[in-house]
Design a binder for these strands. Structure first.
Ligand SMILES: [Zn+2]
Ligand SMILES: [Zn+2]
Ligand SMILES: [Zn+2]
Ligand SMILES: [Zn+2]
Lengths: 135, 135
DNA sequence: GCACCTTTTGACAACGGTTCTCATTCCGGC
DNA sequence: GCCGGAATGAGAACCGTTGTCAAAAGGTGC
């Protein structure tokens, strides 16, 4: 067999547009919508099509390179993230976000699921409030 | 002054439509979308406008009479719920849902938020997996 | 039962975020 | 430089949700 199906490189060209989106995410520590990112890029002179922004963000989310959070109105918001499992403490006022970890919570979630016979368990957990600056 | 502004009855007439929606929710233990509920009502002979279904569900959500959960695609799904604070263990296959409580998790969330100086704290937490029937 | 007034309803249009389409452009390898 | 597949982007389509507003329904006092 040729080397083409050797699974390694799962097609992902480093184009100008993808670099721009990744770069833009790197500059913020809070969650942003696809359209906000599109606007920011445009303002910064980087013209990237809205479709491409959506596609890129989806791909990054699939690759666990960004976290996705649904706003109350259902809009998806993205944020660069570390590669270890974590959750978020998000300010309802300014959006300021802190990554938090809680081993005890992880164990609790797993235990509860097992007690009910659930398998392939995952979970979502976010904490909201007003940060010191917004209080 | 008349009794009209005596705050007590916060205007909520028990109409046929509202009863039908509430009754429909009572018949399921899993999360349903507004449109699913609309279809179910129609199939059951209860003709209720889609707008009314949306309005009623929103009102019930505001009154904490139903839980709202955003599906991965952003669609809102509703479920009747008990009146105490709780979270959910949801089957990704059939939607079967179990309400769960975890006092330790509640304390952890509050503590983490306080450590970062956050006030007016709330949180969301859901656990997903495959139930015994779907495994 | 009957006015009277307010709330509620529902068909339909409008909205907004997201996805799809497809002709064009880009990239990497030869 | 050429070729072929991947990527892009302008615009249309999609779809859940919300807004509009005239008509219908509840409640109240009579
Ligand atoms: Zn803040
Ligand atoms: Zn976790
Ligand atoms: Zn199941
Ligand atoms: Zn809780």
């Amino acid at each position: 067999m040729t080397s083409t199906d050797a699974g390694a490189a799962r097609t992902a060209r480093p184009t100008r547009q993808r670099r721009a989106v990744a770069e833009c995410l790197r500059r913020f520590d809070d969650f942003r919508s696809a359209q906000e990112i599109h606007d920011l890029l445009r303002q910064g002179g980087d013209n990237v099509g809205l479709s491409t922004v959506y596609r890129t963000l989806q791909a990054m989310a699939d690759a666990d390179e960004v976290d996705v959070l649904r706003a109350e109105d259902g809009e998806a918001r993205y944020r660069r993230c570390s590669d270890t499992h974590h959750h978020h403490l998000v300010c309802r006022g300014c959006g300021h976000t802190v990554e938090v970890e809680g081993p005890a919570v992880e164990r609790w979630a797993t235990k509860v699921a097992e007690e009910h016979g659930f398998a392939e368990v995952s979970h979502t957990l976010e904490i909201f409030g007003h940060c010191p600056d917004c209080a």
